[in-house]
Design a protein around this nucleic acid. Structure first.
Lengths: 228, 228, 228, 228
DNA sequence: ATTTAAACGAGACGGTACGTCGCGTCTTAAA
DNA sequence: TTTAAGACGCGACGTACCGTCTCGTTTAAAT
């Protein structure tokens, strides 16, 4: 359970059913598949889980929080395959991520909770903690492997490393999500390869530029590196 | 009006009020600002627009369609500034796009309608036509200018050009949206510069790889160009 | 047309369609048959009559007035048959009236407009003029015939005659309507005969009591005539 | 509550509020007084009762059923006064009934629900059970008292007694309702006396005719007893 | 073994918004 | 000026979910 740690677990009375939690999350995913985000109702989830509505509300504040928890676990199944090269690893994870976004439960839920989170700070935090930050591990692991293989130079310092990882993460996740959900076109092996080429070249250039001199590229209205 | 072209405009009966259309869209944006997507109601929009609920439903099938039309026009305000270099132009448009995503009406609406569109083919088409495809003009114009400046080589053929444009579009739009709405961190000049460096290097590499020999890079599990 | 006399018929512009009036009333009756009072709508009547809604409203103030006019004409079809005796005549008209109340258009409309009229003085007047008062002719004609046959004595004066006619009318119409619509049981020949026996005996007694001395029967709390 | 007996009262879940039932019926009567039948809305009743609309619909199928229950209780307040003679008793109950029909809530509601019931079998049954049949007790009690006083002979058999009671009921209720609501003239002591005279004479004649020979009066087209 | 107290299912509750329907009025072009 | 057509502001409809509440029942730990 991602959502509710009990630092002070009540010691008396009937304890909460552990089975109910999993049944509810499973029911939530099933309801997402059948009905989609906007038609999913708490009543339907309760019905599917064989649980009273009050049991849901005792554990989650509402639909948003419930759905975040229900889908978060799916993102944890993503893995960075070790395919021998950074390029192959990236393509592999891109295709995995695309496959995840093809699943109806994530497809309908992910953008919806993000949309909700734009007006709900607590939800934004929950999404970040439950989904976004957890998956940055893939970027960090990829860079680590690439450095070990000599494919990428080490980052000069931790802060730069973190910022680069954030950028890479936004570019990869953003591009795949946009392709899959906004443009609504297939993220297939061909697209993944083209995207990876672009990304890796950019990574190299970003690294060398950083090493060269960052001050050379200060403001807009001047040419980028001559390689383009 | 993006939403309803009347190839055969009915000639009889009282014509629809043109003023009502604009009042409704304006009211929709105002309601998005005040209430956000999920709290926006048709009744509230009607009230703000000084219009009956039935008048809304006579023109739009529902909240989804209405909101797409209401925000689509905002995207048309994006422009590719001519700042003298491709890099500067990209940074300029990225910052413009980010500013648009900072506006509460787009912030709350964009992801929401995309989320809805995952289960509604007609809505997906509407979004594509009203928003997505229209903004590809920015990518195409940017490339054209860059070619004229000699910053980028010409694309070998129209098909490749279109696919590259799609890829660039997904990368730029995806990265900015992800940074702004999912990661929920600022898209400022620093981020825009770093992102642009990455993108332009990637573009150059993608172009040269294409010219070299595409068949060299066939499948995952092999190294990309040695520059990385 | 019962409803709107035009003492000053407009002389300029397109004249009103005379055919439309009858079409509308006919359509109203048809709609009453198909839908009943509460589901009848002005739009449906207009549609059936092949007429615009505005045309209805130009002629009738609303549903109530329209329906009164539409059914009033049906009541004018009632006739007092000359069957040779007052008893037979009454039974005949009772059965005719019952048959009229069996027709779905009157069945559903009559009580409805009466109900509406309890809060609408103008409507009450319209009903009285268009329906109720017109049918008192049957009572008056029946008495006239009965007097000619020597079945009933002449009323002592016009005022008493009018009050008696009103009483008879309320008793006959009330009993038949109550039996048919409230008790919802058949008004058949058996019932008509039993009712007529009661009524005629009552009529005779009322007449003789009037002649005897009206002052003998003053207030409640005393016995009626010993014959009962 | 007349409307919904639960032979198997559900034992689970929160029980329905008994207070709500009475509040709703009271609010319905108040709304009838203020707005009349046709302007009464479920929303207004709910508001007055301090109750959600859904609570109304959980208990009653609609306005018709609700109003029947709301006014039915008023009819139960009718009593047959013991004024010493049948004539006086009848006049007393007629005036009571007239007073009831003067009340705005019954005035506007009674004919309306009867009108609705012409197209709604279930509603007809409800009205019969809740209102009509219940008030026949007055007729039966009146006859019983009259027989004990020797004012009326005993009915020969139960079936005849029932049919006579029905007839009397239709005549009394019908005449009073017609006078009060259709003719829209006052049911005062004078009218009540005149009506009672007519009725009692009729009752006596009907009884004696029944004893004489029913077969003598077979069909229309023959003279009634010479006394008329 | 009994008590205690929270969790549980069921479902009623006060709300809010839905999308539809009918009202009676209006605005157009045609007759 | 009337007509057909149909858009319009309005207000009620009956439904669906919301999140809360009140029941009686179950369950495990504390007594």
């Amino acid at each position: 359970m991602l959502s509710h740690s009990h630092p002070e677990p009540a010691r008396t009375g009937r304890p909460r059913s552990a089975a109910a939690d999993e049944a509810i999350l499973e029911a939530t995913r099933a309801s997402l598949v059948d009905l989609g985000w906007s038609k999913l109702t708490m009543g339907d989830v309760a019905l599917r889980a064989g649980v009273a509505k009050t049991t849901l509300y005792r554990r989650w504040a509402g639909k948003n929080e419930l759905v975040v928890d229900a889908v978060a676990v799916l993102f944890d199944e993503l893995e960075l395959p070790d395919l021998g090269s950074l390029s192959a690893d990236i393509q592999g994870v891109v295709l995995q991520f695309a496959a995840l976004l093809e699943r109806p439960e994530t497809r309908t839920a992910l953008m919806a909770v993000v949309a909700e989170s734009t007006r709900d700070e607590a939800l934004r935090t929950r999404i970040r903690n439950s989904i976004v930050e957890r998956q940055k591990r893939l970027v960090l692991l990829g860079r680590e492997r690439a450095e070990q293989r000599g494919e990428l130079p080490a980052e000069p310092d931790a802060d730069t490393a973190a910022r680069t990882a954030d950028l890479i993460f936004d570019v990869i996740a953003g591009a795949v999500v946009h392709r899959a959900l906004v443009s609504a076109e297939p993220v297939d092996a061909v697209w993944a390869r083209r995207f990876t080429v672009l990304l890796l070249a950019g990574l190299g250039a970003a690294a060398s530029e950083r090493m060269d001199q960052m001050e050379r590229m200060d403001r807009p209205a001047q040419k980028p590196g001559g390689s383009v």
